[in-house]
């Protein structure tokens, strides 16, 4: 049943995250059955987006423009830099309305198993960024996974001499969470980094 162009389409769709053999087949069947104009519009939009998006030459964010909107924005603080793993993390942080500095995207986290070292997390580009910008505080907004912790430890140690203040996101009880259902590593962290009630 799935031969020729259709088999090729299935193969390509399977490369998308969360898409297995079955879903890929279902999507492929759907695409060839659907309204031709709509299907072609979909294909075109994929093509345009893929062609237009590139890494920002300043902060490495995936963006249609180079430099990206965050690097160009005149009303953002230059002395505050938030380091994230992926482009989508930037949008999540933007949604909080709590941050008005610049961003830098690492694209990866340190992981010897995957062969990811300083070059793969864009460390040289980050150093270049810091040479050209007057950054006073760095916020490491990375996952608290083993790989995230390793990356945090590495960056904090390497940048300690140049940057006055290096912080990371706090790890503790989630908002609306319940102490009873918090694991003890998390609860331990929350206790260790408790804050004064007036600081809310």
């Amino acid at each position: 049943m799935f031969t020729g162009t259709l088999a090729l389409l299935v193969q390509h769709l399977k490369k998308l995250p969360g898409i297995g053999n079955k879903s890929a087949r279902r999507m492929a069947m759907h695409l060839i059955r659907m309204n031709k104009a709509e299907a072609i519009a979909l294909a075109e939009s994929i093509k345009t987006a893929v062609e237009k998006y590139r890494n920002c030459s300043v902060c490495n964010l995936l963006s249609e423009d180079d430099p990206c909107q965050f690097c160009r924005a005149p009303n953002r603080r230059d002395d505050l830099l938030c380091i994230v793993e992926n482009t989508q993390d930037v949008y999540l942080i933007e949604e909080t309305n709590e941050f008005n500095g610049r961003y830098f995207v690492l694209s990866n986290l340190l992981s010897p198993i995957d062969g990811i070292g300083p070059d793969q997390i864009n460390f040289p580009a980050l150093c270049e960024y810091l040479r050209q910008h007057q950054v006073k505080e760095i916020i490491l907004a990375l996952n608290p996974s083993a790989e995230g912790e390793s990356t945090i430890n590495f960056l904090a140690a390497e940048l300690a001499t140049e940057i006055g203040k290096i912080t990371r996101l706090s790890t503790g009880i989630p908002f609306g969470g319940d102490i009873e259902y918090t694991t003890s590593i998390t609860l331990g962290n929350a206790l260790k980094r408790r804050y004064k009630v007036n600081d809310q």
Partner: peptide, 9 residues
């Protein structure tokens, strides 16, 4: 420096 980042953990 990379080794140290794992040592710490």
């Amino acid at each position: 420096a990379i080794k140290k980042s794992w040592d710490k953990q």
